[in-house]
Design a protein around this nucleic acid. Structure first.
Lengths: 165, 165
DNA sequence: GAATTTACGTCAGCCTTGTTGACATTCCAA
DNA sequence: TTGGAATGTCAACAAGGCTGACGTAAATTC
């Protein structure tokens, strides 16, 4: 607790400590997805739809290939999800003006409504966890998570962070 | 940064801050699973096998129903995974002595070998992240994750923590 | 202007991992 | 002895990944 946080000192990390962290990630991620999953079940949508809706909301007008890079799935997989969202009127797809090959994606009012329901639920849990742990813990939480990402994902993450409204 | 960590003060948490946390979880979890996934691909196993092997290693001699509770899947789903692991000689299943309905699960030498390969990879990433972030951040990381779990999962997590070698 | 590349959509088929429902067995406990 | 718990297993299905192949339109390059 009283040590330097700047990582110059090589920490002694036992396998035990690391294993606890691994299991914490596992169980916490379950909680992290539980509330949106509950909302989605019963609708014809799943976690994949949630992810698409989240990132389209985040970056209105983003292109398909950009979304592909962020989500890290194949275009066939994304397309299946996107098609249902478009057919159901949650997402609008627009030909690019500058480059007409690109499709720009937007949430419709209906899509924004679902996004709000999902993110409200997820934020509520995150808020409760943040409050329970306190601001210093939150800072550490974010630091460790960022350090755990693959470099490309860290880039994507930071691009999103900046772009934030 | 200079505030109390004990949660008495109600924090002001913007949707922006919370969203960043949500996205950090998403991208970090991808990194978290990436290395074991890479090892598993090519073998006949997947992430579900990893989880089973991990928790059997963790609690040698655990029963099927205990594993079921920890993993949060149906017995049919777990059984499929378990059967291949047993058939391939990675896991040994033993009738209980006290209660012969129960099956106690153990890793064989071969199973322990796979477990080691997987957890070495996962620990390496976790270790790097912990070192990069520093000990104070690590404490916060764990606090927030624990606060994010569902209560039953937190119980399971804590039971495992105590049981640790 | 022709050839190539890029962005996207789509069809078909496969795999893993989750689900529900039904049923059999074994065995503990009241 | 009888009900319920712990387990195994069969069948069927769905979500959401994947690969491979093909088509089209538009941009870019030669």
């Amino acid at each position: 607790m009283a040590e330097r946080a700047s990582g110059e000192t090589l920490l002694f990390l036992t396998d035990e400590q690391l294993r606890k962290g691994i299991e914490a990630m596992f169980f916490a991620y379950r909680g992290f997805t539980a509330d949106p999953d509950r909302i989605l079940q019963g609708m014809d949508y799943g976690r994949a739809h949630h992810r698409a809706v989240h990132f389209i909301h985040r970056s209105q007008g983003t292109t398909v290939s950009n979304l592909l890079a962020i989500l890290g799935v194949t275009k066939q997989s994304l397309n299946r999800v996107l098609r249902t969202l478009i057919d159901d009127g949650l997402v609008r797809s627009e030909k690019g003006r500058k480059d007409a090959r690109e499709r720009h994606l937007y949430l419709t009012a209906k899509g924004a409504e679902l996004e709000r329901a999902l993110s409200d639920a997820q934020r509520a849990r995150m808020r409760a966890a943040y409050r329970a742990a306190g601001p210093a813990a939150v800072a550490g939480f974010r630091q460790v998570l960022e350090a755990m990402m693959d470099p490309e994902m860290r880039l994507a993450y930071n691009r999103l962070k900046e772009g934030g409204a």
